[in-house]
Design a protein around this nucleic acid. Structure first.
Length: 664
DNA sequence: ATAGGGTTAG
């Protein structure tokens, strides 16, 4: 990190830039539940139904009921309005029933009074005024903001049968799904089943919803659907909606067609959502023929295409490369009032640009700007990408500048797009500004951000900064890209940052099952150059079969000369074991090192004893050297060992012709 | 008396 530019960069680039922006965790803890809390579910809920005059038609309300009802009503709103609701709560504790407190709890949840909600929940726990609904609502609202807190609440439920109540289970499972934690959701679900949960149609639908936008969601969904008969559950219209969305987001149009067929057979008529998903499944391949047929069928049963349906159709046409029809459809959307925001324009611009029609994309863009269509900056972002794709970096950079001043808010994708434009245009100052912006807006960099930056830093010869960024990328759990790492390793080697190069190699190795075999060779040269022979030995040991003979020879000699003497025999065995023919020079160096270090004489004896069995013998000069020093080892022993070298060499020549080659 | 879903943009 010595170059002035790097120092400058570091000053401008805050060290915490890539720190995860963790939210401060709530310091609230759940007090231990008092023993008298959980009145049996049935009693709580049924008494609520009886006492509330919900069914007006059944009997004329008595005055007493009415009064108590009114008193509770006013108590509820008093607590809701109170600036110090806990003290109102204390005062009205005798009037308010569990279900009233649940009403207040949900009200807090809806109006976003999170602290109050948690305080109320704790109060209810402490006063034993708690029911199944309390848990399910509380978990739902708390989970929307803080999953781990919701899990904590779920785990704190003392009663085993309450823990497997289907409403509560559905609530917590939904929290996990909504927070993108499908894996832990499925794990918890399996545990719940083992504990006795009887999942229902809502449970399965909740889990299925989690499969929509994850990879491998489709097979997971099929697995879940397979469990339905075992639990006596019939798919309903909602579930078909979810399943169709899964098919659509995985490009499974045939499967989507089958599900539509199946639901019709079971007597459900598809609605606009079901058709939308089916239509969306056609967008993958741009199957506009099927899409047109679908539109016809849908209209024939009296469903009117809405904005989403028409926008999805536009997507199909664009994917299918029907740009003239796409433009026509966009006009239809405009006249229907469905193009009041930038989205359909964005889709068309993007499709045109990806089809190499930058000028046509540009004209849609200008057209849209001319019409004063509402934009949040997506259109600019797409245009910037389009310009970069056509290598028009100057324009891309100018439009990025323009976007920065026009749009206050930008999301990660927009930031990445602008960052990329600045990097490609070589605008260092702007790159740093974007990084600062990300940090200030607490937007965590993603895989693309890291990739763009590392590539840029390498281009600008800021190799150590590229290295730091790679470390950061790896520690954030992003998969490293081999080509980029390989380039970085090469450059780090060139600037003699061998240890850093090795660290990149290791990160790549441990995040990927197989890496290109040239990379082992490349890192080996770098490590040898840096005299990091122990590391080089590890590389050889693990990958000897993928390394060329000349490189193994280079390593062997380097190790014999200055590697750790205690590992010399191990290295020779590994080299030989990989099929490498150890040359005489390596033995010579190893043996002279041993002789100069008499305390290693055991190692020398081991080596000399090992050699003949593998078809190696010492050459005459080495032999003389050993004999000259044989007093250190015991003359007789040496003589005996060396005699084997002599004897063994003859049959070896006969049986293994390559011996000639070896002793050269 | 609480829990679930589905369509569109970079």
């Amino acid at each position: 990190m010595e170059t002035p530019l790097l120092v400058g960069l570091e000053l401008r680039c805050p060290p915490h830039l890539f720190n995860t922006h963790s939210r401060p965790s709530s310091s609230l803890s759940i007090p231990a539940l008092s023993l008298r809390i959980l009145t049996p579910t049935a009693a709580t809920t049924s008494s609520a139904v009886i006492e509330l005059p919900a069914n007006v038609a059944e009997a004329p309300r008595s005055k007493r009921h009415s009064n108590s009802y009114l008193a509770r009503k006013s108590a509820i709103s008093e607590v809701q309005r109170s600036s110090d609701f806990l003290s109102s709560l204390q005062r009205l504790a005798t009037v308010l029933k569990v279900q009233d407190l649940n009403v207040i709890l949900r009200d807090f949840g809806i109006s976003g009074r999170w602290q109050d909600l948690i305080q109320l929940f704790e109060w209810m726990q402490q006063h034993g005024k708690i029911s199944v609904s309390t848990y399910s609502s509380c978990i739902k609202f708390v989970g929307a903001k803080n999953v781990s807190k919701a899990l904590e609440i779920y785990q704190s439920i003392p009663d085993e049968s309450t823990k497997i109540n289907v409403y509560i289970c559905n609530s917590i499972l939904s929290c996990l799904v909504k927070n993108g934690k499908l894996d832990s959701c499925i794990k918890l679900f399996d545990q719940m089943k083992r504990d006795g949960l009887k999942p229902d149609v809502v449970t399965y639908n909740t889990l299925l919803a989690g499969c929509i936008k994850v990879k491998n969601g489709y097979p997971k969904a099929i697995e879940l659907i397979g469990e339905l008969p075992h639990n006596g559950i019939q798919m309903d219209s909602v579930m078909y909606g979810t399943v169709l969305a899964i098919c659509a987001s995985n490009g499974r149009s045939e499967e989507a067609e089958n599900f539509i067929q199946q639901m019709k057979v079971e007597g459900h008529s598809p609605n606009i959502y079901h058709y939308s998903s089916l239509l969306n499944s056609y967008s993958w391949k741009g199957d506009y023929k099927k899409a047109d047929e679908l539109m016809t069928e849908m209209k024939s049963i009296g469903l009117v295409p809405n904005k989403v349906m028409m926008t999805t159709l536009l997507k199909v046409y664009i994917k299918g490369g029907l740009f003239d029809r796409s433009r026509e459809l966009l006009s239809e959307l405009e006249s229907a009032g469905y193009a009041e925001n930038e989205m359909p324009y964005c889709m068309l611009m993007d499709g045109l640009s990806k089809a190499g029609k930058l000028e046509e994309a540009r004209s849609i863009f200008d057209d849209m700007k001319g019409k004063g269509v509402r934009s949040d900056g997506y259109a600019n972002s797409i245009m910037i990408s389009a310009l970069c794709r056509s290598k028009r970096f100057k324009e891309a950079k100018e439009l990025s500048r323009d976007s920065e001043t026009t749009y206050e808010k930008c999301d990660l994708v927009m930031l990445n797009t602008m960052l990329c434009a600045y990097c490609r245009a070589g605008e260092m100052q702007s790159v740093m500004r974007m990084m600062k912006k990300m940090d200030e807006q607490a937007v965590s960099p993603d895989y693309n951000t890291f990739h763009i930056l590392i590539k840029y830093f390498i281009k600008e010869k800021l190799h150590l900064l590229a290295y730091q960024t790679t470390l950061d990328m790896h520690s954030k759990g992003h998969r490293l890209e081999e080509e980029l790492c390989s380039s970085l390793i090469y450059h780090l080697g060139k600037i003699r940052a061998q240890a850093e190069a090795f660290s990149v190699y290791n990160m790549l190795r441990y995040s990927k099952r197989t890496i290109c075999k040239e990379l082992h060779e490349k890192i080996l040269h770098i490590l040898i150059q840096g005299n990091l022979l122990k590391d080089a030995y590890i590389v050889v040991k693990d990958n000897a079969k993928m390394i060329s003979q000349p490189t193994l020879k280079k390593f062997g000699r380097a190790f014999m000369i200055s590697g750790n003497i205690n590992l010399v025999n191990d290295v020779l065995k590994v080299l030989h074991g990989s099929g490498h023919k150890i040359d005489q020079v390596q033995f010579e160096i190893a043996i002279s090192r041993y002789i100069s270090q008499p305390d290693k004489k055991e190692l020398l004896l081991q080596l000399l004893q090992w050699m003949p069995g593998q078809g190696y013998v010492v050459d005459s000069s080495t032999r003389n050297l050993i004999l000259k020093n044989s007093h250190m080892f015991g003359r007789l022993l040496i003589a005996e060992i060396l005699s084997k070298h002599h004897v063994a060499s003859r049959p070896m020549i006969k049986s293994r012709p390559e011996q000639k080659f070896r002793s050269k």
